[in-house]
Design a protein around this nucleic acid. Structure first.
Lengths: 320, 320
DNA sequence: TCAAAAGTGTTATCCTTACACCCATGT
DNA sequence: ACATGGGTGTAAGGATAACACTTTTGA
């Protein structure tokens, strides 16, 4: 049927555990992974956000806490999530509204098809905590070959080639460049082609594909979250009530994909007056016990609050 | 017909002229002003952005330059722009996708129904260039009466009451608070009521309403743009090829709604290496001639660039 | 000669960066 | 005792905020 539009909602639900940034994924048998998603019912759903909370809870038993809208994708030919649709809607144009959700509870999921996945599976070139990622070196030749010429300056900037500095926020632009360069399985899929052999040769370095435009939405979420860390105290939305400063730093590092300078991070925290020591100690650190802190959530209503500065830890020769 | 969705695209097209921030508006006879808008055709339009560029050009003869997506609104009951719809679609749920466009050409529009409007008409409390705006003092009592109690801290923060600092970026949050407080004609309209008399008594201080959710979209655009000034050099998208530093500063001030410190603004510009003096002078300044500058657009591809810092000019007792 | 706007010099302070070292626990 | 991680002091350099003054034009 012509002239029909269907709205699909997708959720990027992020948690952090043991220094890993995790994202909630669902997987149908024999399919690539995907994000939790569902259709928006124009008759029943009052707002996008309510609809989203409802189906994420239904699929995974979570109550989402922090939620924000990311972006609405409407390009023709970027493989709409047909799986959502009822038979009747298969000919409809699908518009995809992406959301970001944060939760401190990375407990096991309660449905067999959903799981927490380290998001580095999908973007292995985004983790610079142990120095320049191997995945990046692996794809660099293919990137250069594609960029060759007028696209080189931008490619250099995005992927930190030839001494350009790494900017951790530009996850989406990097993914879009790789897509445009034909270096993602999704690009071939959307053109109705089989993946190029050169591409399979690169293996895991290009990251695992996702169904539909979900990897694009995930990239959008990462970009947004990495940027937002700096101007809103969102990191606390993935922390438990009580935490050590090292755990907090590891969480920020996992999200931002870079290593931070310990003292400068702490000094900035202290100046911002965002956390409060509890006097109690965590004995399970493996070394000297660490003091436990809590987020002073009350400051949110009381004064303007920015996020955390991310004082970069310089190279250190990058070994594990 | 049940279960149908229609997508409406709205454009906030911003220009700056003579220290005024202008926005392109359209107006049907006997109606409040609105933004240029049009339906998205799921069969014909390949992307939102292409559809948007096409109908803005059709309505106003502009070629949009810089364009970015703002937000997608889907709340039931925030008065969908029914005027867009064909007769057949009147029962459909309307989803509204807002876009921001910037143009340096604030020439007269070429259609009788469109015009450039100073956006302060819609948000008179957002201009702090001449000190605390009178409109704010006018609505403060009504705000306090509504806030009274648990909502007071947030209201204070947003509207700079009781000595709280003004944050120019939070345009949307302020508008949404006013809407929630019933202090906008749109709120009554969406409930199917007549505007409260107390509201009309405040007159222009509450700003001119717009059709549908267009004032909300405009507020979103202002928030985005004011924030973006600081981390991307977007201000140059509303400047002519060649300009004086004072004109640049006035443009930033018009958008941000605050006064800046001249030398510190210039020092920051110089350090960022974003502009280049041309050696030529502008004789029409009314005082000493000013050197003409251009934006070094080539830096965009060459290195990471942030926006401009906004060194606040302190009070100065706020007289014109 | 004066009003109007352009354009410059300089200092105090604060924040960021970077250096290196000490502390408390378990094995 | 020593490995492991927790936790701190301090100084250099750079960015910001704030002070006021000089220059060049038109009327």
């Amino acid at each position: 049927m012509a002239n029909r539009v269907v709205i699909g909602l997708s959720a990027v639900v992020v948690a952090v555990r043991d220094g890993q940034a995790l994202v909630l994924t669902v997987r149908a048998p024999g399919q690539p992974a995907g994000l939790p998603f569902g259709p928006f019912d124009p008759d029943g759903d009052r707002t996008f956000e309510l609809a989203l909370r409802a189906f994420v809870t239904a699929q995974t038993r979570f109550d989402l806490g922090y939620v924000e809208q990311l972006y609405t994708f409407g390009d023709k030919g970027r493989d709409a999530p047909v799986a959502v649709l009822e038979a009747d809607d298969r000919a409809a144009r699908v518009i995809s509204v992406g959301y970001l959700g944060l939760t401190p509870h990375a407990v096991e999921t309660h449905t067999p098809d959903s799981a927490w996945s380290d998001w580095l599976r999908f973007f292995p070139w985004e983790d610079w905590r142990e120095g320049r990622p191997l995945a990046l070196s692996a794809i660099e030749p293919a990137l250069r070959q594609w960029a060759n010429g007028s696209r080189l300056p931008r490619t250099r900037l995005l992927f930190a080639l030839d001494g350009a500095p790494w900017n951790e926020e530009r996850v989406l632009e990097r993914y879009e460049l790789l897509y445009e360069a034909g270096l993602t399985p999704e690009a071939a899929r959307d053109r109705g082609e089989a993946p190029a052999p050169a591409l399979t040769a690169l293996g895991a370095a290009l990251g695992e594909p996702m169904i539909s435009d979900h990897r694009r939405i995930l990239a959008t979420a990462l970009s947004r979250l990495r940027g937002k860390l700096k101007y809103r105290p969102v990191i606390f939305e993935v922390m438990p009530e009580v935490f050590t400063l090292s755990a907090l730093q590891r969480a920020v590092e996992a999200v931002a994909g870079i290593r931070l300078h310990k003292q400068n991070f702490r000094r900035a925290l202290e100046r911002a007056d965002l956390v409060e020591g509890l006097g109690r100690l965590d004995q399970d650190t493996g070394g000297r016990p660490a003091e436990l802190f809590r987020f002073r959530r009350e400051v949110l209503g009381a004064r303007p609050v920015s996020g955390l500065t991310l004082p970069l830890l310089r190279d250190e020769s990058a070994s594990p």
